[in-house]
């Protein structure tokens, strides 16, 4: 599903955010990207949805050479993946329903599809009964579930989450993680960048650890801190 080979990312201001990264992620897996703030987690995700281009190396997402993608093809790539952020990125003047439908409407979807897909994803995230509410009438967890519904409304095979629980309390965090897990079990590949130790330790999924723009460990059923469980360093 995802393949990064020798990827280096230097931002225009000269910051070397990623340094010769190699990373393979199989279809249908659930992967945590962990590491201190500023180690390049968001940068990895940005490469995948083509917010930035690598300075060197190749980026392949679902068979698409993202590093070589022409600008005019970027919208097509983004329709095949969903992205979720810490700050939800919802439109406050639109209802839950409208926020979710927005992703379809602005890509020119038929009303028929909007009417079919929006209820499906709202049901999936458990917000059918709040579809007429506005974001500021919802809890943080509900807002994030709205954002997830929007990310999923195009039926993507890949869901990218950048600190999805960064603004949430533990209860809401658990709720969101369980939702992401359910989504993953339905076959969607899920990549979560986080520095929430509790979540990572409880879920026991693949953990890719970044430090200063490099992948230092990659464990199949890892913990947040290296060495808490049986560790299996695959690269570094």
């Amino acid at each position: 599903m995802i393949s990064l080979r020798g990827v280096t990312l230097v931002y225009p201001n000269g910051v070397r955010a990623l340094d010769r990264i190699d990373l393979e992620i199989e279809k249908g897996t659930f992967v945590f990207l962990v590491g201190h703030s500023g180690t390049g987690k968001s940068s990895v995700l940005r490469l995948l949805y083509r917010e930035v281009k690598p300075t060197a190396g190749t980026v392949v997402v679902d068979g698409i050479r993202v590093d070589r993608l022409r600008k005019s093809r970027v919208p097509a790539l983004r329709r095949h993946l969903g992205v979720v952020f810490q700050d939800f990125k919802l439109l406050n003047e639109k209802t839950v329903w409208e926020n979710v439908a927005f992703a379809l409407q602005v890509t020119g979807a038929h009303t028929r599809d909007v009417m079919r897909q929006v209820p499906r994803v709202l049901d999936l995230v458990g917000l059918s009964h709040k579809s007429r509410m506005y974001p500021n009438e919802l809890s943080g967890g509900e807002q994030q579930r709205t954002a997830i519904a929007r990310a999923l409304v195009n039926n993507p095979k890949l869901l990218l989450c950048d600190e999805p629980s960064g603004n949430l309390d533990p209860t809401n965090t658990t709720e969101i993680m369980e939702l992401l897990l359910r989504i993953n079990l339905k076959g969607t590949t899920v990549v979560v960048a986080t520095h929430n130790q509790a979540v990572v330790d409880r879920m026991r999924r693949r953990v890719v650890r970044l430090d200063d723009g490099r992948i230092v460990t990659d464990e199949e059923r890892g913990y947040y801190f290296l060495g808490l469980g049986q560790t299996q360093v695959l690269s570094g």
Partner: peptide
């Protein structure tokens, strides 16, 4: 700009935006 950012994120084309 927020709205435009979201549009770009979910795959709206520049022409549509």
């Amino acid at each position: 700009r927020r709205e435009i950012g979201i549009m770009q994120l979910v795959g709206a084309t520049n022409a549509y935006i």
